[in-house]
Design a protein around this nucleic acid. Structure first.
Lengths: 213, 213
DNA sequence: CTCACGCTGTGAATCATTTCACAAGCATAT
DNA sequence: ATATGCTTGTGAAATGATTCACAGCGTGAG
């Protein structure tokens, strides 16, 4: 029973929406309310709730704190997960700033860069090491998750070192496909592709609009 | 005949890989070579080539320059597309730096921010305006594509203004679902969700590994 | 107490996407 | 000139994800 990738993504979104609701004092939520907030269908929400194994009442819907708890049990590791960052360029620094104190279960504990002027400092609460230390630091600290924010040419080499040092999951910002062994998971964030998609469909929709009218 | 979202994303990736190949002097490419570079199957590549309507020879494979040309004809607008950026924070600035001179067909022409200290300057070749000018500048310049890199609370309001000003496609970095009219396309980049997915599957794979051995 | 309503949980159906599998084609070696 | 061993292009099958549709239930109204 392998959970679909899409489902995991939605659960992460649900959780953030639910936390926001709880902070506003909401105690219960119906599938169609959460669906509307997440931009999906009610049936989809109920299906997803099945996979985290938690149920609601026909009268009140789902209990918000309970849902948050169960999604956490499903998504999170028992211990906070240490995350490494490779590449302290524009995107790397933006990620450091973004994740600072945002998700306590995912802590950026080490950054690596080739450029000596960026290393041996602490940026956004995260120590920067020279790239040569990557394998040893990742190995020593038992880091399993890493973000790759280096130029395209360097991405494969960096990934190879990380995987050999024990990393099992990569978040890749480089605009290339990284080749990894079967037991490693890679998620790509490719902003060029994303922006080209947006531009393409923006045009399509316009065309479609015209053809309909 | 609506092109699937996934296909458009892959075409964008193929194009970059093909440009890199051409720069290395490669003239022809087989579907399995491109597939391997892109991390997909050969059949997938051939299917995708069908949608751009361009064919290869059984002996030589596909002609690289011709493929680049045809993908461009399919993906790109005739004129370079003007892109707006809303939110000149960490992520916004990283995007400005990233896109500077990268894709000539997608030009960031205007940025907007609430913070007066960031506006009325030119950063990475892109002029920053106060947020109040957003509607008029977007309307005047006929901007159809925008990137939203503001805090979650502000994202919906920003999107509403952009859509009213004529934007048809949004690239959303805020970790919320944005509600837009049917004729507007939204692509979300949610780094929190992506990182949580990576952490989740990194753990899964480990577990799976253990259960197999 | 009983009814009616609106919700949940879920098997089955639908819809979308990917992969299979193979006919047809072209260059090269014989 | 022909056989061989690759390839492409593409219907058909398989796989994967989403939505439908409805039985079952708990609550509040009468």
């Amino acid at each position: 029973m392998m959970t679909p990738e899409r489902t995991v993504g939605r659960l992460s979104l649900y959780r953030r929406l639910l936390v926001a609701m709880r902070n506003r004092g909401t105690r219960h939520v119906f599938s169609h309310e959460l669906a509307s907030a997440a931009g999906v269908t009610a049936a989809q929400v109920r299906r997803d709730m099945m996979t985290v194994g938690c149920s609601g009442s026909p009268a009140r819907g789902y209990d918000v704190p309970e849902l948050i708890e169960h999604i956490g049990l499903f998504l999170d590791a028992d211990e906070p997960e240490a995350v490494a960052l490779v590449g302290v360029g524009n995107i790397g620094r933006a990620m450091m700033a973004y994740f600072e104190g945002r998700r306590p279960k995912l802590k950026m504990v080490a950054a690596f860069d080739q450029d000596g002027s960026k290393t041996n400092r602490v940026v956004h609460g995260c120590r920067c090491y020279p790239i040569e230390d990557m394998a040893s630091v990742v190995d020593d600290r038992g880091i399993r998750v890493a973000m790759v924010a280096v130029p395209a040419e360097a991405a494969q080499d960096v990934a190879d070192v990380l995987v050999r040092a024990g990393v099992r999951g990569l978040l890749n910002f480089a605009p290339v496909a990284i080749r990894v062994p079967e037991h490693v998971y890679v998620e790509d964030i490719d902003v060029t592709t994303s922006l080209e998609k947006v531009a393409f469909f923006a045009r399509q929709k316009r065309a479609h609009k015209v053809s309909v009218s």
